[in-house]
Amino acid sequence: MQHSFLASESDPESDSDTSPLLGSASSTASTVPVRKVTVSGDDPATARQNYERAYDGSRFTVTRGTEPFSFQWVSIGDDRVSLRTATMTGHVTGETPGLTDYVVSWVTTGGGWIVRRDGQRMEIPRHPFVLPFRRPYTVHLTPHRQNSVLFSAPYLEDIATEIHAGPSQQVSFDLEATPTPEAIERWRVALNASTPVLTDETAPPLLRMNAQRPLALALLQLAPWAVVDLPEPLREPSMARTRLAVEYLHHHAAEPITPADAAKAAGLHTRTLQLHCRRELGMSPTAYLRDIRLDRTRRELADSSPQETTVGEVAKRWGFVHLGRFASAYRNRFGEGPSQTLRG
């Protein structure tokens, strides 16, 4: 994906802004609706400081490559969506405690990888992919040109309610899924259409908002996702592995998995996951997985009709063998029987 939405400045030093970079799209209203920041230079120490600010990270190192060293950051955006292009002829490594924005990124030259807390290594591809949200990871970049689109959490989570029809909640993307060619094309089309508006500092607010929404919807079609209502303690960096296990249950609920599989995927002992789930969620991971499957069953019944399917067929698809027990658990959770949901 060769699209580059923020071109290099002809003379970056002439209007360079040395204030902290727009590393995130603030969730609060900004006094300046749209802000453009350009930072560039030939000093690795300055580059390191700016990468640490942008990633809200630590222990960043920047080393020279074979080419004369230079770097440039260009970022433009408002409190909902920001576009960012980073170019560097050196190598970068560093740690981030977890992004607080939803970020889609890709490289047009060079490459690199990230390593999640669970040890999973993910190559940074040429096609758009979603970076880990609120999960610690380390980043490694070779000399590169990297594009990113940042969505503030409240904004994207509100847009997602148009799809899942529930309250605004954290969106958990399946980071192991590879975007389909169709999803990448939808993203490309949306990005190309919105970029002229989003990079125009004089664009009227309504026009800007109408350019942002299709891009947010394209992100929500880029990778599988689920909404996860997590209590605040599970959002802390120290609970990253437990959070990863809980998200695993959401992403793989349609598969024949157990809590032990989720614990293994997150690098936890099953007993630790059980203790944390009982303490923070008020139930065992087995009960939590059952509730996820009940919720998916309800969604499928609500989207169907008696002419299309039966309660028994949907229940069995979600692993409920004993229909009497299923109906009882369903009524206890939703206050109505599954047949009522199917009839609408």
Rank of each mutant, 00 (worst) to 15 (best):
F5V: 13
R298E: 06
H251G: 05
Q2A: 13
R243T: 12
M122V: 12
R317I: 01
L217P: 01
S8P: 12
G98T: 06
H140C: 01
G337C: 02
T272M: 04
G90H: 01
V314G: 04
D17Y: 00
V32L: 13
P44E: 09
F69T: 03
D15K: 02
R235W: 08
D303L: 11
A160F: 00
R116H: 15
G110M: 02
L198P: 03
A327S: 12
G344M: 11
A54V: 14
E280Q: 13
S30D: 05
L217Q: 14
S238T: 15
T89Q: 01
L323T: 06
T199P: 01
V32A: 12
S4I: 15
G166W: 09
P237I: 07
L99Q: 12
G267F: 03
T161N: 04
R213Y: 06
P259E: 09
A190D: 06
A254T: 14
W113Q: 13
G267Q: 07
E280H: 15
L131A: 11
T87H: 10
F60D: 09
L323C: 01
S305K: 07
H127C: 03
Q2F: 14
P204E: 07
H251W: 14
D42L: 00
G90N: 06
P224M: 09
S24L: 08
A216I: 04
L207A: 13
D200Q: 08
P231Q: 10
Q221R: 15
Y288E: 01
Y55S: 07
Y137S: 06
G90L: 01
P233W: 08
V32Y: 09
E176W: 09
L222S: 05
V74K: 11
T310C: 00
G166C: 08
L273D: 02
A218Q: 08
S82N: 12
N210W: 12
A183T: 06
S305R: 13
L220C: 03
I124M: 07
P181H: 10
Y330F: 14
T142H: 05
L21G: 11
P179Q: 03
S339P: 01
H276C: 12
Q274G: 11
V74C: 00
L273H: 09
S24Y: 11
S4G: 13
L215P: 01
V227P: 02
N50K: 15
A45I: 08
R325D: 08
R134H: 06
F326A: 03
A254D: 14
P259G: 04
T89D: 00
L22I: 09
S305F: 01
R117D: 14
D79W: 04
Q169W: 08
F326M: 03
F320E: 03
V130Q: 03
A287L: 09
P214I: 10
P44A: 06
A153W: 03
V39M: 08
A160C: 04
R134L: 11
R121N: 07
P97D: 08
N332W: 00
T258S: 04
D15R: 05
S105C: 05
S14I: 00
D101R: 05
G94F: 04
